[in-house]
Amino acid sequence: MKTDDLIATLSDGLTPTPPGEFWRRIAVGTACGTLAAALLWLGTMGARPDLAEATGAWPFWMKFFYTLTLAVTGLWLLARAGRPGAKLTPPALTLMVPLAVVAVLAGLALADPDADTYRLLMGHSALYCPFAIALVSLPVLAGSFWSLKRLAPTRLAMAGGAAGLFAGSAGAFVYAFYCTESAAPFVVVWYSLGTVLSCIIGALLGRIALRW
Protein backbone atom coordinates (compact mmCIF):
# COMPACT_ATOMS: atom_id res chain seq x y z
CA MET A 1 0.00 0.00 0.00
CA LYS A 2 1.24 3.47 -0.85
CA THR A 3 1.91 5.70 2.14
CA ASP A 4 -0.41 8.43 0.82
CA ASP A 5 -3.24 5.90 0.51
CA LEU A 6 -2.56 4.74 4.04
CA ILE A 7 -2.85 8.31 5.34
CA ALA A 8 -6.12 8.76 3.44
CA THR A 9 -7.52 5.51 4.84
CA LEU A 10 -6.55 6.38 8.40
CA SER A 11 -7.85 9.94 8.32
CA ASP A 12 -11.08 9.33 6.39
CA GLY A 13 -12.56 6.92 8.88
CA LEU A 14 -11.41 8.85 11.95
CA THR A 15 -13.71 8.62 14.97
CA PRO A 16 -13.34 10.73 18.15
CA THR A 17 -11.27 9.15 20.91
CA PRO A 18 -13.16 9.23 24.25
CA PRO A 19 -11.14 11.16 26.87
CA GLY A 20 -11.14 8.21 29.28
CA GLU A 21 -10.00 5.66 26.71
CA PHE A 22 -6.43 5.48 28.02
CA TRP A 23 -7.48 4.76 31.62
CA ARG A 24 -10.25 2.45 30.48
CA ARG A 25 -7.68 0.19 28.81
CA ILE A 26 -5.62 0.17 32.02
CA ALA A 27 -8.62 -0.43 34.25
CA VAL A 28 -9.99 -3.40 32.31
CA GLY A 29 -6.78 -5.45 32.42
CA THR A 30 -5.58 -4.59 35.89
CA ALA A 31 -9.00 -4.90 37.57
CA CYS A 32 -9.77 -8.24 35.92
CA GLY A 33 -6.32 -9.54 36.87
CA THR A 34 -6.66 -8.47 40.49
CA LEU A 35 -10.15 -9.91 40.75
CA ALA A 36 -8.97 -13.21 39.29
CA ALA A 37 -6.06 -13.33 41.75
CA ALA A 38 -8.37 -12.66 44.71
CA LEU A 39 -10.90 -15.28 43.61
CA LEU A 40 -8.26 -17.91 42.86
CA TRP A 41 -6.22 -17.46 46.04
CA LEU A 42 -8.91 -16.75 48.60
CA GLY A 43 -11.21 -19.27 46.89
CA THR A 44 -8.68 -22.09 47.23
CA MET A 45 -6.63 -21.09 50.30
CA GLY A 46 -9.29 -19.02 52.05
CA ALA A 47 -8.89 -15.90 54.17
CA ARG A 48 -7.22 -16.09 57.58
CA PRO A 49 -9.71 -17.57 60.06
CA ASP A 50 -9.27 -14.68 62.51
CA LEU A 51 -9.91 -11.98 59.87
CA ALA A 52 -12.65 -10.22 61.90
CA GLU A 53 -10.38 -10.00 64.94
CA ALA A 54 -7.34 -8.98 62.92
CA THR A 55 -9.07 -5.98 61.38
CA GLY A 56 -9.31 -4.55 64.90
CA ALA A 57 -5.51 -4.37 65.24
CA TRP A 58 -2.93 -2.16 63.50
CA PRO A 59 -0.64 -4.84 61.91
CA PHE A 60 -3.41 -5.83 59.51
CA TRP A 61 -3.86 -2.23 58.43
CA MET A 62 -0.12 -1.74 58.10
CA LYS A 63 -0.01 -4.58 55.55
CA PHE A 64 -3.22 -3.29 53.97
CA PHE A 65 -1.94 0.23 53.40
CA TYR A 66 1.64 -0.74 52.60
CA THR A 67 0.53 -2.98 49.76
CA LEU A 68 -2.27 -0.63 48.68
CA THR A 69 0.00 2.44 48.38
CA LEU A 70 2.60 0.36 46.54
CA ALA A 71 -0.11 -0.90 44.17
CA VAL A 72 -1.46 2.60 43.46
CA THR A 73 2.04 3.90 42.80
CA GLY A 74 2.75 0.84 40.65
CA LEU A 75 -0.36 1.61 38.63
CA TRP A 76 0.85 5.18 38.15
CA LEU A 77 4.22 3.84 37.00
CA LEU A 78 2.52 1.39 34.63
CA ALA A 79 0.43 4.19 33.11
CA ARG A 80 3.54 6.31 32.57
CA ALA A 81 5.36 3.35 31.00
CA GLY A 82 2.46 3.00 28.54
CA ARG A 83 2.76 6.60 27.32
CA PRO A 84 5.67 7.35 24.98
CA GLY A 85 7.70 10.30 26.17
CA ALA A 86 6.36 10.31 29.76
CA LYS A 87 8.83 10.48 32.66
CA LEU A 88 8.99 7.56 35.09
CA THR A 89 10.93 9.33 37.84
CA PRO A 90 8.03 10.81 39.87
CA PRO A 91 6.21 7.49 40.46
CA ALA A 92 9.51 5.64 40.90
CA LEU A 93 10.55 8.04 43.66
CA THR A 94 7.11 7.90 45.29
CA LEU A 95 7.58 4.15 45.79
CA MET A 96 10.17 5.04 48.43
CA VAL A 97 7.53 6.63 50.68
CA PRO A 98 5.55 3.53 51.78
CA LEU A 99 8.79 1.54 51.87
CA ALA A 100 10.40 4.13 54.17
CA VAL A 101 7.37 4.22 56.49
CA VAL A 102 7.32 0.44 57.00
CA ALA A 103 11.12 0.37 57.27
CA VAL A 104 10.90 2.89 60.13
CA LEU A 105 8.22 0.78 61.85
CA ALA A 106 10.46 -2.26 61.41
CA GLY A 107 13.43 -0.37 62.84
CA LEU A 108 11.40 0.65 65.90
CA ALA A 109 10.28 -2.96 66.49
CA LEU A 110 13.84 -4.27 66.22
CA ALA A 111 15.23 -1.50 68.44
CA ASP A 112 13.26 -2.81 71.43
CA PRO A 113 15.88 -4.46 73.69
CA ASP A 114 13.46 -7.29 74.59
CA ALA A 115 12.67 -8.02 70.94
CA ASP A 116 13.11 -11.52 69.54
CA THR A 117 14.88 -10.37 66.36
CA TYR A 118 14.77 -13.75 64.65
CA ARG A 119 11.02 -14.14 65.21
CA LEU A 120 10.28 -10.57 64.12
CA LEU A 121 12.15 -11.08 60.87
CA MET A 122 11.32 -14.69 60.01
CA GLY A 123 7.85 -15.11 61.54
CA HIS A 124 6.57 -18.60 60.73
CA SER A 125 6.19 -18.26 56.94
CA ALA A 126 9.29 -16.41 55.69
CA LEU A 127 10.36 -19.25 53.44
CA TYR A 128 7.24 -19.36 51.34
CA CYS A 129 5.80 -15.84 51.72
CA PRO A 130 7.68 -14.19 48.77
CA PHE A 131 6.96 -17.12 46.47
CA ALA A 132 3.30 -17.17 47.47
CA ILE A 133 3.05 -13.44 46.73
CA ALA A 134 4.71 -13.90 43.33
CA LEU A 135 2.30 -16.76 42.61
CA VAL A 136 -0.79 -14.76 43.64
CA SER A 137 0.40 -11.90 41.45
CA LEU A 138 0.59 -13.94 38.23
CA PRO A 139 -3.04 -13.31 37.13
CA VAL A 140 -2.53 -9.61 37.91
CA LEU A 141 0.61 -9.65 35.78
CA ALA A 142 -1.29 -11.23 32.91
CA GLY A 143 -4.02 -8.57 33.20
CA SER A 144 -1.45 -5.77 33.35
CA PHE A 145 0.27 -7.07 30.22
CA TRP A 146 -3.10 -7.18 28.49
CA SER A 147 -3.50 -3.48 29.32
CA LEU A 148 0.06 -2.47 28.38
CA LYS A 149 -0.16 -4.18 25.00
CA ARG A 150 -3.08 -1.88 24.21
CA LEU A 151 -1.04 1.17 25.19
CA ALA A 152 2.34 2.09 23.69
CA PRO A 153 5.22 0.93 25.90
CA THR A 154 8.50 1.95 24.26
CA ARG A 155 10.95 0.48 26.79
CA LEU A 156 9.68 -3.05 27.20
CA ALA A 157 11.77 -4.33 30.12
CA MET A 158 10.97 -1.18 32.08
CA ALA A 159 7.26 -1.43 31.26
CA GLY A 160 7.27 -5.12 32.19
CA GLY A 161 8.96 -4.26 35.48
CA ALA A 162 6.31 -1.61 36.19
CA ALA A 163 3.58 -4.16 35.48
CA GLY A 164 5.38 -6.66 37.73
CA LEU A 165 5.62 -4.11 40.50
CA PHE A 166 1.92 -3.35 40.31
CA ALA A 167 1.08 -7.07 40.07
CA GLY A 168 3.40 -7.91 42.99
CA SER A 169 1.89 -5.31 45.29
CA ALA A 170 -1.68 -6.12 44.23
CA GLY A 171 -0.84 -9.80 44.82
CA ALA A 172 0.58 -8.92 48.25
CA PHE A 173 -2.58 -6.96 48.98
CA VAL A 174 -4.66 -10.08 48.30
CA TYR A 175 -2.19 -12.28 50.21
CA ALA A 176 -2.45 -9.99 53.27
CA PHE A 177 -6.03 -11.26 53.80
CA TYR A 178 -4.64 -14.78 54.13
CA CYS A 179 -1.32 -14.20 55.93
CA THR A 180 -1.28 -14.12 59.73
CA GLU A 181 2.10 -12.44 60.17
CA SER A 182 1.98 -9.14 62.01
CA ALA A 183 5.59 -7.93 62.52
CA ALA A 184 6.76 -4.89 60.54
CA PRO A 185 10.28 -6.34 59.98
CA PHE A 186 8.69 -9.42 58.38
CA VAL A 187 6.54 -7.28 56.12
CA VAL A 188 9.30 -4.95 55.00
CA VAL A 189 11.57 -7.86 54.09
CA TRP A 190 9.35 -10.65 52.74
CA TYR A 191 6.41 -8.72 51.33
CA SER A 192 8.84 -6.42 49.54
CA LEU A 193 10.83 -9.39 48.29
CA GLY A 194 7.70 -11.00 46.87
CA THR A 195 6.92 -7.76 45.04
CA VAL A 196 10.48 -7.52 43.72
CA LEU A 197 10.25 -11.13 42.52
CA SER A 198 7.13 -10.29 40.54
CA CYS A 199 8.87 -7.16 39.23
CA ILE A 200 11.76 -9.27 37.92
CA ILE A 201 9.38 -11.76 36.30
CA GLY A 202 7.56 -8.84 34.66
CA ALA A 203 10.76 -7.26 33.34
CA LEU A 204 12.01 -10.57 31.88
CA LEU A 205 8.70 -11.47 30.26
CA GLY A 206 8.02 -7.91 29.13
CA ARG A 207 10.93 -7.83 26.70
CA ILE A 208 9.14 -10.39 24.56
CA ALA A 209 5.50 -10.46 25.64
CA LEU A 210 4.96 -6.70 25.42
CA ARG A 211 6.02 -6.27 21.78
CA TRP A 212 3.43 -4.52 19.66
Binding site: M1, T3, I7, L10, A152, W212
Partner: peptide, 14 residues
Amino acid sequence: VQECLIAIHTRRAT
Protein backbone atom coordinates in the same frame (compact mmCIF):
# COMPACT_ATOMS: atom_id res chain seq x y z
CA VAL B 1 7.20 4.90 8.10
CA GLN B 2 3.93 3.03 7.52
CA GLU B 3 4.34 1.01 10.73
CA CYS B 4 4.72 4.29 12.59
CA LEU B 5 1.62 5.83 10.99
CA ILE B 6 -0.40 2.76 11.98
CA ALA B 7 1.07 2.91 15.50
CA ILE B 8 0.11 6.58 15.81
CA HIS B 9 -3.39 5.63 14.76
CA THR B 10 -3.96 2.61 16.99
CA ARG B 11 -2.16 4.14 20.01
CA ARG B 12 -3.49 7.68 19.70
CA ALA B 13 -5.34 7.29 23.00
CA THR B 14 -1.96 7.19 24.77
